[in-house]
């Protein structure tokens, strides 16, 4: 779907100074939010926890 603003958000994340694991993690969470936008109730906890498990292992401590 044409949507520049999402691209802007993704670009801003990619260009930021943060650890690659954090960047990847945030993009993944945004995709969760995008997919479920408009749903009255969605259970984010499980999806979030799985992503936290996956990306916290990749995260290099001390690198902001």
């Amino acid at each position: 779907m044409p949507n520049d603003i999402n691209k802007k958000i993704i670009d801003e994340i990619n260009q930021s100074k943060f650890d690659p694991a954090i960047k990847e993690f945030l993009i993944k969470l945004l995709l969760f939010e995008l997919e479920s936008a408009g749903e009255a109730r969605w259970h984010f906890s499980d999806k979030y926890d799985a992503a936290i498990r996956q990306f916290s292992d990749k995260f290099k401590e001390g690198v902001k």
Binding site: K8, I9, E12, K23, I52, S56
Partner: peptide, 24 residues
């Protein structure tokens, strides 16, 4: 502790990036 640290860094990153986009 490890997860908490990761969440904390991610929250800082998310807030900073959001503020930057908002300002732009």
């Amino acid at each position: 502790g490890k997860k908490l640290k990761f969440i904390d860094h991610s929250l800082t990153a998310a807030t900073e990036i959001k503020n930057q986009i908002m300002s732009d």
